[in-house]
Design a protein around this nucleic acid. Structure first.
Lengths: 330, 330
DNA sequence: CTGAAAGCGCTAACAC
DNA sequence: GTGTTAGCGCTTTCAG
C-alpha cells in the first residue's frame, strides 16, 4: 500500500488540500456536503494524517517525555500508569526514558529529548541534578518534577513530604519513650534518604536527642537479607524504618530467623507501602503513597503549563500519604 | 532563546546548510577545517537537530511503539527495561502505550500509532486480537509480538512455551502418582491461561486422566485471599499451580490459616517467578521467566527486521525458563 | 466557504 | 568538497 497523503485525499474528493486539512482538524467553516465528501475519501483511502508532518508544521509534537529510574519497581510502574492514563485524555503520547545505572548517561537522555522536540518532560528521578534541568530550561522545555518540591517559570512539581511523614511518625514513638529507632536503607535514592534523615533528625532533636542509627544495607534483597541476618545476631531496635517493601521483608525475615518477634521485640514500618506488605506475615505497616496520583497529577500540571492562556496555576503540589497500620507495629 | 535551525548554523559557519547537514550526519566527505568550523558554530549556538524534521525528510522516526497491558506488574516493568536498554543502543525512542481496561480502546492506540509513523511496534498484550495486527500490517508497520508464537512477512515474535513448561512439570508429578493438581487463576490473561490449560490437559491425557481442577479466583489479591480462605476450608489439593506471585501468596496465606501445611499437605508452585516468591515463608517455588530478555530480544528482532539488507532472520524466538525449586514444593 | 502558496527544519540527489 | 534545489506532509494566512 502506497503511502497515502493529504494530497491524495484532496484529489480523490476533488477539493484542495487546505479543505482536507480543515476537516481533519474539525474546522467549523467547512460546508456539510464537502465535509462528507472529504470524509468518504479519507475512509476510502484509509488515510491517517501524518503526525510528524503536523508536528513540523505546528511546532509541537503532542508528546511528552517521561524519565524514570527504572520501570520495574511497583511504584514507578504506578506512576507511569497514572501519567499515561491522563496523557491519553489529552491525546499526548509518552516517550519513556530510563536512567539505568551504567547504561545511560543522563546527558544523553536530555540530548535526545531536546532533539525530539517533545512538548514537555516529566522527571521522576532520584539523583536529579540541577544541571540537567538547566539545559532543559535553556531550551525552554517545560518540566514537571515528581518527588522533589521545586518550581520556577517553566518548572512545576508534585511530591510527598517524606520529611514531614517520618517526623510525625517518629515523634509519636519518641513521645512514648521509644527512642531506639533505626533507619535501614541502601543509598539508591539519595534525595529521598536525605528527606528521611532530616525528618528523623528533626524529631530526635526536638527531644534533645540525636539520630545516628542509620544502617546501610546492600541494594538487592538477597544480599541485604544475608547482611541483616548477621546484623540482628548482635543488634536489635525498638523500631526499624525501611523505605521499600523488599527492605522491610529482609528485616522481617532476618529478624524472625534470629528469634526476634515482630512486633513484640521490634516494630517494623515500611515507608513506601505496597500490596506485598499486606501479603507478608506479619503484615507490614506502611504509608500508602499515592504513586498513581503522582503520575496523574504530574501530567495534569504539565497540560496546564502547556496551555496558552496565562491562567495562574499552582506549580507546587503536595500529595498526602495515608498511614496504614498492620501487624508489624503495635 | 530563539529556535535555532540548521540554517542559522550555516550562516554562522558561513557554509551551506547541506554542509551542516553533512557534519551532523557524520558524512565522510567534509574537509576537516570546515567540519571544525561547523562544529564550533553548532556549539556556539547550542544547535540541536530537529528530529521531527529529520523524521519527515527521512520517512522514519527512529521510534518504536510498545504496547503493554499495564506498567505496574513487575514483569511488564522488566520487559520494558529490557526493551528500552537495547533500544538505547540502536538509538531508538520508545513510546509507551498501555491498554488499561476501561480507559483505552485498543483501536485508539493503533490509530495513534499509525498516525505517529513509528518505525515498528512491539506488542506485549494478552488479549491481542488478530484484527489489530491486521490493520497494523495494512499500514506496513513491522510488528514483534511478545508472548505468543507467530510470524509473518512483517511479524516476528519472542515467547516462552508455557504449555511445554507446565506439561513437563505436571508430568513429573503424575509420574509420582500425584494427580490432584489444581490450577488457580483469574482470567486476566486468556491467552496465557489457554496455554497453561492445554499443557495440563495434555499431561493428564497422557495418563488417561482429564483435567478439570480449574479454580477461578478474583483478580485482586485481597479478594482472592478471602475467596481462597473459604475455599480451603473444604478443599485441598496435592499440588496447586498459580500464575502470578500474588496468587501464590494468596494460596499460601489462606491455606496456612486453614491449618494446611505447605508443602507437606499441599505443594504450591508459581509459574511466573518473582523476587517476592523468595521473600515469602515458605519460599515459593517458581519458574524464572526471562522477562527482561523477552523485552531485550524483542527489540533486537525489531532492529533486524528494520534493517534494509535482506539477511534472513529468525522471526520466532523461543526463550527458556528455569525451574527454581524452593520451599513450597517437596 | 474554498483554494493558492508560503513555510515548518531537514535530507538527498544533482550540479559545480 | 560544497552549494542549490526539490521534496517530506501538513497548517495557515491571504485572496477570492
Amino acid at each position: 500500500m502506497k503511502r497515502i497523503t493529504i494530497y491524495d485525499v484532496a484529489k480523490e474528493a476533488d477539493v484542495s488540500l487546505a479543505t482536507v486539512s480543515r476537516v481533519i482538524n474539525g474546522s467549523e467553516v467547512v460546508r456539510e456536503d464537502t465535509r462528507i465528501k472529504v470524509q468518504e475519501a479519507i475512509e476510502k483511502l484509509g488515510y491517517k494524517p501524518n503526525a510528524i508532518a503536523q508536528g513540523l508544521a505546528l511546532q509541537k509534537t503532542t508528546t511528552i517525555a517521561l524519565i524514570v529510574p527504572e520501570a520495574s519497581f511497583f511504584y514507578t510502574g504506578q506512576i507511569i500508569n497514572g501519567l499515561i492514563d491522563v496523557a491519553k485524555i489529552y491525546k499526548y503520547n509518552i516517550v519513556l526514558h530510563t536512567t539505568t545505572e551504567g547504561i545511560t548517561e543522563m546527558n544523553d537522555i536530555i540530548e535526545t529529548i531536546i532533539k525530539s522536540r517533545v512538548d514537555g518532560v516529566v522527571i521522576f528521578n532520584d539523583k536529579l541534578c540541577k544541571d540537567e534541568l538547566n539545559t532543559l530550561t535553556r531550551y525552554q522545555v517545560p518540566i514537571v518534577v515528581i518527588g522533589n518540591r521545586m518550581s520556577d517559570e517553566t518548572i512545576g512539581s508534585v511530591y510527598v513530604d517524606y520529611a514531614k511523614l517520618i517526623y510525625e511518625f517518629a515523634a509519636q514513638y519518641l513521645e512514648k519513650g521509644i527512642t531506639d529507632i533505626a533507619l535501614i536503607e541502601d543509598r539508591k535514592n539519595p534525595a529521598m534518604l536525605k528527606q528521611l534523615n532530616d525528618g528523623l533528625q528533626h524529631a530526635m532533636e526536638d527531644k534533645g536527642l540525636t539520630f545516628d542509627n542509620f544502617v546501610e544495607i546492600p541494594k538487592e534483597y538477597r544480599s541485604s537479607y544475608l547482611y541483616l541476618k548477621e546484623y540482628f545476631k548482635t543488634h536489635k531496635h525498638q523500631l526499624v524504618i525501611t523505605y521499600r517493601d523488599s527492605q522491610a521483608m529482609a528485616v522481617l525475615n532476618s529478624a524472625k530467623e534470629n528469634g526476634l518477634m515482630i512486633p513484640d521485640d521490634m516494630e517494623v514500618v515500611c515507608i513506601l507501602d505496597s500490596k506485598y506488605n499486606a501479603m507478608a506475615r506479619p503484615q507490614i505497616t506502611g504509608f500508602k503513597i499515592p504513586d498513581y496520583d503522582l503520575g496523574a497529577v504530574a501530567m495534569r500540571v504539565m497540560t496546564k503549563m502547556l496551555k496558552e492562556d496565562d491562567e495562574v496555576i499552582d506549580k507546587e503540589i503536595e500529595l498526602s500519604y495515608i498511614y496504614t497500620p498492620r501487624q508489624s507495629t503495635k
